[in-house]
Computed example of a mutant assay.
Amino acid sequence: MRKITIVVLILAIAACKPAPKKAEAESETVENTEVEAPKYPEALGKVIEKHGGMDAWKQQRTMTYSLPKPNFIEVHTIDLYSRKDRIDTEIFSMGFDGEQAWLLDTDKKYTGNAGFYHNLIFYFYAMPFVLADGGIIYSDTEDLEFEGKNYPGIEISYESGVGASSKDQYFIHYDPETYQMAWLGYTVTYRSGEVSDNVKWIRYNDWTSVNGLILPNSISWYKYEGRELLEPANTLTFESASLSNEAKEDGFYQKPEGAEFVEIKKN
């Protein structure tokens, strides 16, 4: 009888004990299902959403477009995950293999700076999505006025060591009614290594849909006096734009035979 009583007491105590492991597991499950909040401002989120959304952007792997020049056509190809890139023309090629930039220019026809240029146009073309990259610092900036309309904006700067020119600044301005991107201001510090207060301005008002993402069909640099925008100076047109969720074959972005590595200066 005494043994029965002890067994009953043990069972009763066990039944009354909490189940911490189960509670902890449930807590972990709840924590794991929490969605990480975007690290960019709400206004920029609305601009990105207007252009197709970050989820749709992240589904894409390879971007290509052509850039007509007076004597040749540049075909730009970019891996959107690794940011490896390649530019091909009938005269020369250049690219970035993930660590180093390279230039294939057998006839010595290229007169620019391949270490600076290989991905320059991509950042202008892939607006506003590239402004959600890591290592970015966001700040408020004053509205930009053009033809009697005010365009709110966001200032973008970079943490030290991010990109080839972490001292560069960007200013994205958008339509306050539609949240579509309208202007991009930027400074260039690549060659000098010094912070610049000379802001150049590009107008974004010609868009096209590529796989559901709204990307520029053309962009126009404007003449300016400080923040006063004058008239167009020159226009860059993009052709044959495409997006794919598949990566290029192994070795596509690697330095080809006969090419040379070129310096990428870090500011």
Rank of each mutant, 00 (worst) to 15 (best):
P256D: 03
E177V: 03
L236F: 05
P216C: 03
A126T: 07
D107Y: 06
G258D: 06
Y158Q: 11
G163F: 00
F252Y: 12
A126K: 05
A43Q: 10
M127L: 11
G185V: 01
A114V: 01
L9T: 06
Y174D: 10
D105C: 15
S66M: 08
W57P: 08
E159V: 12
T111F: 14
A15G: 13
A19P: 06
Q169I: 09
A43G: 01
L103Y: 06
G53V: 00
W221D: 14
E194I: 07
L236G: 02
F171E: 11
P41L: 03
Y123E: 09
I13D: 04
P41A: 04
N32S: 11
G115F: 00
N267F: 11
E155A: 14
K21D: 13
D88Q: 12
Q59M: 10
L144D: 05
S82Q: 12
L67R: 05
E145H: 06
I10W: 09
L67V: 10
H118Y: 14
A23K: 07
Y174K: 10
S242C: 01
Y125E: 04
P20G: 08
V210R: 09
G115Q: 00
Y123N: 13
Y190R: 10
E263P: 11
T111R: 14
G258C: 08
Y40C: 06
T208Y: 01
G112C: 07
E246M: 13
S82E: 14
I10C: 15
K58W: 07
G153D: 06
R2F: 13
W57T: 05
M127I: 04
L213T: 09
S157K: 04
R203S: 11
H118R: 07
S93V: 06
P232Q: 07
E147A: 12
L44I: 03
G193R: 03
F238A: 11
E74Q: 13
K265T: 13
V30S: 12
V8I: 13
K39C: 07
A37W: 00
L44T: 02
D133I: 02
D206V: 09
V195Y: 05
F124T: 06
D55M: 08
S157G: 05
G135V: 10
N71S: 10
R2G: 09
D168C: 05
I13Q: 05
L229S: 03
E260L: 09
E90F: 10
A126C: 14
M181Q: 11
E147T: 09
Q169N: 11
A25W: 04
K248D: 04
A114K: 00
T77M: 07
K58S: 13
Y170E: 15
V199R: 07
F124N: 08
P256A: 05
I121H: 03
G148T: 04
E26S: 15
A233Y: 12
N205Q: 09
I137Q: 11
A247F: 13
Y123H: 10
G135T: 08
T111P: 05
